[in-house]
């Protein structure tokens, strides 16, 4: 008697692979799309007051500086329609960088203050972070970080959670090229409004390639990092200044006394 051999399903494994990839992939993509839309919707409709309550700046421990605060609020005059209660703090770090946090808190690193050659340069960096706030980018990045960690957790199973967590942090840090460009344009306009010219604005960017692009975290996950190359950003800024008739030459304002010592 021939054995029946009915313990193995007759379906071809490649057919099953096709069904599963299409099915699981389709459901996964649909889910991600739904979360994506939810994030975009939340970012668009979430009032600033609620964002500030969800991310209170009081929970961030960073020493404040009256000089920096004054500079921030002078710049913010060029963005009168904002609803944030803006604040700025200094964090101790050897890497020159600046962050905008959900809730309207800005952070600059001590290295940035030390390396800045003029107030104009610093103003551009602060303006850039204000630009991120104007685009609600930090909030959106949080949502996208959630998206990335969801996707990675699904792919990697429970073990992927650790990777997912770090990827989520990375997602919070990196904005898209368009977001960066928009923030640059926003910053340049603020700088032009404050000083009457945009001299010195791009100086920090010009120094950036060695410092920021060699960041270990970015090298480790370079595919996730989408920072536009600094040279391109400078060129974009020059073109923007030309179009608006903002002078690239002008007197640089020295940094307020004592600021770079922090």
């Amino acid at each position: 008697m021939e054995p029946l051999e009915n313990n193995v399903s007759p379906e071809h494994p490649l057919a099953e692979l096709g069904t599963l990839v299409l099915g699981v992939g389709g459901i996964g993509l649909a889910l991600l799309a739904v979360v994506w839309l939810a994030v975009e919707g939340a970012v668009r409709w979430l009032p600033v007051s609620l964002e500030e309550r969800a991310f209170p700046s009081a929970s961030i421990e960073a020493p404040e500086s009256p000089e920096l605060d004054a500079l921030l609020h002078r710049l913010a005059k060029g963005w009168p329609e904002h609803e944030y209660t803006l604040g700025i703090g200094v964090i101790d770090s050897p890497e020159p960088n600046a962050f905008a946090l959900p809730g309207g808190q800005l952070l600059v690193t001590s290295a940035l203050l030390q390396q800045a050659a003029s107030e104009n340069e610093l103003a551009f960096v602060i303006g850039h972070e204000l630009g991120h706030l104007a685009g609600r980018d930090p909030l959106r990045a949080l949502g996208r970080g959630l998206l990335v960690s969801l996707a990675l957790a699904a792919v990697g199973g429970a073990e992927g959670a650790g990777v997912a967590a770090s990827a989520a942090q990375l997602g919070e840090r990196s904005f898209s090229r368009e977001q960066e460009s928009a923030a640059d344009r926003f910053a340049l306009a603020l700088v032009a409004a404050e000083y009457g010219h945009v001299a010195g604005a791009a100086d920090f960017l010009r120094r950036l390639p060695d410092a920021a692009e060699a960041g270990a975290a970015e090298r480790a996950a370079s595919w996730l990092a989408t920072h536009p190359r600094s040279a391109e950003r400078v060129a974009e800024l020059r073109a923007l200044a030309d179009r608006n008739g903002w002078s690239l030459e002008g007197e640089l304002t020295p940094l307020p006394r004592g600021m770079s010592d922090q």
């Binding site: 379906e11 599963l20 699981v24």
Partner: peptide, 28 residues
């Protein structure tokens, strides 16, 4: 690796893990 991948995908939606059936059938 292929069977494991199939089983992993199957783990998302549930159902008969066909790719492991032949494994156990052979072993028995």
């Amino acid at each position: 690796y292929f069977k494991r991948f199939l089983a992993q995908l199957r783990g998302f939606v549930g159902g008969r893990v066909r790719s492991y059936e032949s494994l156990l059938d052979r072993a028995r």
